[in-house]
């Protein structure tokens, strides 16, 4: 149960302002989700990025940086509050992630990929955005979420967005009714869902479908028959942005499109400060219909 915002830029002009626009949109959705907030930003692509989180960043991140340098001097670590973005060569990512799990057991990997960085914490959206300097971030698209927790804990792990595959993220407003069974199915397929959150199961489901060869649009289409309950999803990939509402479509959703961008808000309020909103095409996504933009 939550507020969602998303912004997918079609042109270069607004890229430096992505973080600023998303921050204002996110803060507007505070009433819908005062428990925690999170954001996925698709910035300048690199060989490989890993966003990690620690509950004790002051001691862990210096040690982590030192450890990474020992592995490979080209690896860099950029710290943002409780999170850090590690830039590393893609071919070393697998080995380093495996080694991290052993040497830094408390460290959480929030997401990875070429472009996506992901930040989320417990607290009011304004505070969360300030802590990570979200307003200053540039990028091609981003998705944000404010959470009113339904059945899983108010923790960093329970916050959205959820990322279960490279450059993939998902946010959710609603409540799934078959996520426990689906979680078991995914486990048999070798896909681990780390939190108790129903939304993470949806993210993992899409990752599974895409691993099996589907593109994002096809994965969302398949979700219509396999995911039960109420949902409005907004999802991101390295180059794409998608929206899906369940067939009942009770949870609110507003889309706006101009020459420059596609924007999503749980409520129109979230969109009122976007440039050119007065002349944008504004509409509500249809139920059980996949909306998908790809660069």
């Amino acid at each position: 149960m939550c507020g969602i915002v998303g912004l997918f830029l079609k042109t270069e002009t607004l890229r430096p302002r992505l973080g600023g626009l998303l921050t204002d949109m996110l803060i507007t959705m505070t009433d819908r989700g005062p428990d925690s907030a999170g954001i996925a930003v698709y910035g300048a692509p690199q060989d490989h990025k890993l966003t990690v989180q620690s509950d004790t960043p002051d001691t862990v991140f210096p040690a982590l940086e030192h450890w990474l340098q020992e592995q490979d001097a080209t690896i860099t670590l950029r710290r943002l509050d409780t999170h850090a973005v590690v830039s590393l060569p893609a071919e070393r990512a697998g080995a380093i992630r495996a080694a991290l799990a052993g040497d830094f057991p408390g460290l959480r990997v929030m997401g990875s990929g070429k472009a996506m960085e992901i930040f989320k914490e417990v607290g009011l959206p304004r505070d969360v955005a300030d802590r990570f300097g979200l307003r200053e971030m540039a990028g091609s698209h981003g998705i944000g979420h404010t959470r009113m927790a339904t059945e899983s804990a108010v923790t960093t792990d329970g916050a959205h967005p959820f990322s279960t595959g490279p450059d993939q993220c998902l946010v959710h407003n609603g409540s799934l009714s078959n996520h426990n069974g689906l979680r078991r199915t995914l486990a048999r397929e070798g896909i681990t869902v780390s939190s108790q959150n129903d939304s993470e199961v949806a993210a993992a489901y899409l990752t599974w479908k895409m691993r099996e060869g589907a593109n994002l649009g096809q994965a969302l289409e398949a979700g219509l028959s396999d995911l039960d309950g109420f949902y409005t999803f907004v999802v991101g990939t390295e180059t794409g942005f998608g929206v899906l509402r369940d067939p009942v479509a009770c949870k609110p959703a507003v889309l706006a499109e101009t020459e420059d961008y596609v924007a999503f808000g749980s409520e129109y309020r979230a969109l009122v400060d976007l440039p050119g909103i007065d002349t944008a095409r504004v509409w509500e996504p249809e139920p059980a219909t996949v909306y998908f933009w790809e660069r």
Partner: peptide, 14 residues
């Protein structure tokens, strides 16, 4: 079984 003009706690708040 549901209210006609809201669903879930975020809508209930409004």
């Amino acid at each position: 079984c549901r209210h006609p003009d809201w669903t879930g706690p975020d809508d209930l708040e409004i």
